[in-house]
Design a binder for these strands. Structure first.
Lengths: 163, 163
DNA sequence: CAGGATCCCTAAGGATACTG
DNA sequence: CAGTATCCTTAGGGATCCTG
C-alpha cells in the first residue's frame, strides 16, 4: 500500500483527525463494542445473551448497546414472549451489516496469525464453499498489499448521509 | 450471517475465550495499535513519524511499536542516515500486511457511515480503478450478510504456525 | 532522532446489588 | 429477563523530562 501524490507529502498531509479509520474506531474500536458486533452478526439479539456470550458486565453491555444503537449499527426492535411484557431486542441495521468485512477480516487474521484451539471457518450457505475476503478493483483485478494506493477521490464529492 | 449446527446451540457453545476475533483484538484492538498499523500500511517506518502522524505521545508509540513487533506484525530493520548512528525502523511484516483487509474494511466503513471531510479512496496501482473488499466463496459467488455461516472446519486441522 | 523513565489522571470496565 | 445504580480498581495514555 502506498500514498498517491500529493498525499505522499507527509509534511503537508496527516490523517490525524480526518481519517475514516479513526472515525470507525471511535464507534467499534473498543473490545466490548467489537465483540457485541461479532455477536450481532452471529444472530444474537437479546440483552442477556450479549452479556453471556460476550462475557461482559451488564453495565458494560448496556453502555455499548446504547452507543451502538445511537451510532446506527444496531436497531431496537420490540418483541414479546408469550406471557411476558414487550421488550426490546437489538438487531443488526444495514450499517451494522456493512461491518461484516471487518468482522470476517479480523476473524481470518486471528485464525491465521494467532494460536488457539479454534477450528472455525465461514462458508457460503448456498454452495457450502468456504468464504474469504478478496481485495479487488473495479476492473476485477485481485490486488495485494503492494498494488494499492490511497488517493484523493475524483469527481463529485460523495453524497452526505444525513444524521 | 448465521451459525451452523452445532454452533447454533448457544447454550452449549460460546466463543468466549476461544474466538479468533478476540485474539486479533488483543493485538490490534486499541486505538493506537490500529492507527499505527494504518500508518505502517501507508508506508510510515520511523518512530518520530509514527508519533506525529498517529498523534500519540512517544511513550505510547514506544509501547505499541514494541508490542506490535513482539506480536510479529512489524519488523525492526536497521538503517543509517549519513552522519548519524544506526537506528531501527519498523516495517510491515507479512503478518502485518495480512491485516490489509481489516484496514481497508474499517476505512470503507468509515467513509460510508461516518461524517467527515475526507475524500479518500483506494485504487489499484496497475489500472487506477478504485479498490474495494469483496466477500466471496471459493466457488466465486459473491455473498452478502445473509449468505454466510460460521461452521466447524472439516478435515485436517490447519497447520500450526510456530512462534 | 529514537526512545526510556516518571508522574499523574481519567475513563473504562468488573463486581455487586437493586428495580420494573 | 432487561436493565440501572453504585462502588471500586486498574490500565491506558498524556505531559514532561531525560538519555544515547
Amino acid at each position: 500500500m502506498r500514498l498517491h501524490a500529493p498525499l505522499d507529502d507527509r509534511t503537508a498531509w496527516s490523517p490525524v483527525g480526518h481519517c475514516p479509520i479513526e472515525k470507525a474506531i471511535a464507534v467499534v474500536g473498543s473490545r466490548p463494542a467489537m465483540l457485541i458486533m461479532r455477536e450481532a452478526h452471529y444472530g444474537t439479539r437479546r440483552f442477556d445473551d450479549f452479556v453471556t456470550r460476550v462475557g461482559v458486565a451488564p453495565a458494560t453491555a448496556s453502555t455499548h448497546l446504547r452507543a451502538l444503537t445511537d451510532a446506527g449499527l444496531l436497531e431496537r426492535q420490540p418483541y414479546q414472549d408469550e406471557g411476558a411484557r414487550t421488550r426490546d431486542e437489538y438487531a443488526l441495521s444495514p450499517a451494522g451489516a456493512d461491518l461484516m468485512p471487518v468482522v470476517i477480516g479480523l476473524f481470518s487474521w486471528g485464525m491465521k496469525h494467532t494460536d488457539g484451539v479454534d477450528d472455525l471457518e465461514f462458508a457460503h450457505v448456498g454452495c457450502a464453499e468456504p468464504v474469504d475476503l478478496r481485495v479487488a478493483c473495479a476492473a476485477g483485478h485481485e490486488v495485494g498489499e503492494q498494488d494499492v494506493e490511497v488517493r484523493l477521490r475524483r469527481g463529485r464529492p460523495r453524497r452526505r448521509v444525513r444524521a
